[in-house]
Simulated scan of single mutants.
Amino acid sequence: MAATQDMAITSPPPDGISDLCFSSQADYLAASSWDNQIRIYEIQPTGQSIPKASYSHEAPALCVDWSKDGTKVVSGGADKAGRMFDVATGQSTQIAAHDDAIKGIKFLDQGQQVLATGSWDKTVKYWDLRSPQPIGTVQLPERVYSMDIRQQLMVVGTADRHVVLFDLNNPTTIFKQTISPLKWQTRTVSCFIDGTGYAIGSIEGRVGIQYIDEKDQARNFSFKCHRDDAKNVFSVNDISFHPTYGTFSTCGADGTIVFWDKDSKQRLKSFSNMNGTIACTAFNRSGNIFAYAISYDWTKGHKLATPGNTNQIMLHSVLDSDIRPKLNNKTRR
């Protein structure tokens, strides 16, 4: 069972939970799931949750994001469509299209109206919500598995361990293309809150911390996590950065969650095992609520995707002492 003080969301998705995202304007949480649905929940100060709205894709929903002003939710799915839900009107419309499933969807930090989508069709496309056609398309070396945006930085992790970096001042040109520092398939990428680098997680129970600037390359490092005493190795399914401190969480197929400080290279907090794979995570805008989904992550294939699998979204009240960076003797930058 989850920690007793963590609260379960009311009416969670009945099928695999693929992504979680909080609004940056209020404590509203959006969740995408394999039952084709996007669900939106209001999280009250007591930790109670109220289902507020939902809308549908025509196939499993794989990713979700909020507009910066908190008025719209966007999502991508295996129906090859990007969809937008207007919170005020309750209407959803298609706003993006690819030739294969959309695995990543993110609003650019610079504009309310522009978003990026990444697909298994090996492209990233940029969309202005006022136009039905993409305003830019970039060919990638492989299928998109994960992507993230922070300030001017967009990081796209693809199949075959490619990592493609974009400077969003020049979004249709690849800024840098590299190979993951990890030896096995990329599962997740997540940008530092200041946009100076990113964390990357793989199926081999390992995380890489990577800086963009050439002068900072000596600060790059990787570490093992989500492994057990019997030397079993588990997938790192998601990495979420705290919005204030820049510390971060990892969650894994081993059923555990850990908070980390990359600057002091320390583990800050370990959660007890949830007895179910942790598929995805998210901090709210102030970083005092941490949401995590106990849900099958497909790391063992379709044979373990049984109807009896747990699907829960849990809310953890974050103690400042559990997520605040630890002081170390090195110069902090």
Rank of each mutant, 00 (worst) to 15 (best):
S33E: 02
G136N: 12
Y126I: 13
E142H: 15
F221L: 11
R130Y: 01
N170M: 00
E204Q: 14
T178L: 11
K215T: 04
G276R: 08
I9G: 00
K326W: 00
G70S: 13
R333V: 12
G208I: 11
D121F: 14
A282Q: 03
D229M: 12
Q44K: 15
K183V: 02
S202M: 03
V207H: 02
G118M: 04
T93S: 15
W120E: 05
E58Y: 14
L304C: 12
F248K: 06
G90W: 10
H98T: 08
W127Y: 01
C251H: 06
T250D: 10
D238S: 08
L62E: 06
D322E: 13
Q110I: 13
K262D: 09
C21Q: 13
T247P: 06
T137Y: 11
T89G: 09
G111Q: 13
K326R: 08
V189S: 00
V138K: 10
S75Q: 13
P141A: 08
Q151W: 05
T117Q: 02
A96W: 11
T89D: 06
A253L: 01
S18V: 00
D238Q: 11
S270L: 13
D69P: 07
T188G: 04
K326I: 02
M154S: 01
H302S: 13
I17R: 06
I294E: 13
I149K: 00
D320N: 15
M7A: 15
G195F: 00
T281V: 09
I40G: 00
L29T: 07
C251R: 05
V233P: 09
T10N: 06
S131V: 14
L268F: 08
E58N: 14
T137S: 15
Q151I: 04
Y41W: 15
T117W: 03
T123S: 14
I212H: 01
M1T: 03
I43A: 00
Q110T: 14
A3C: 09
T117K: 01
V189W: 04
W66N: 04
F241T: 09
D15S: 09
V258N: 12
D6T: 15
V114C: 05
R227L: 12
P171V: 07
W120S: 04
K231P: 01
K68E: 04
F283H: 04
L327F: 06
F22Y: 11
D254V: 13
I313S: 04
Q133P: 13
I200W: 06
D160S: 10
F223P: 05
V87C: 12
Y245E: 00
M314F: 11
T117A: 02
N284C: 10
L29S: 03
R285P: 02
S33H: 03
F166K: 08
Y245K: 01
K231G: 06
T310Y: 04
Q139D: 12
T178F: 01
H98F: 09
G136K: 06
D263M: 14
I174T: 11
F223T: 05
G195H: 03
A96R: 09
W34C: 02
G195E: 00
P141E: 11
N220G: 10
S270K: 12
I209T: 05
D100C: 09
S272W: 08
G308F: 00
I50V: 14
C280M: 13
G157P: 06
R143D: 06
V144M: 01
P51T: 14
T178R: 04
S56H: 10
P12N: 06
V164R: 00
N275L: 11
K262A: 12
D109S: 15
K215R: 09
K303D: 03
Q91P: 00
L20F: 03
K183T: 12
S295W: 03
D213T: 03
S56G: 07
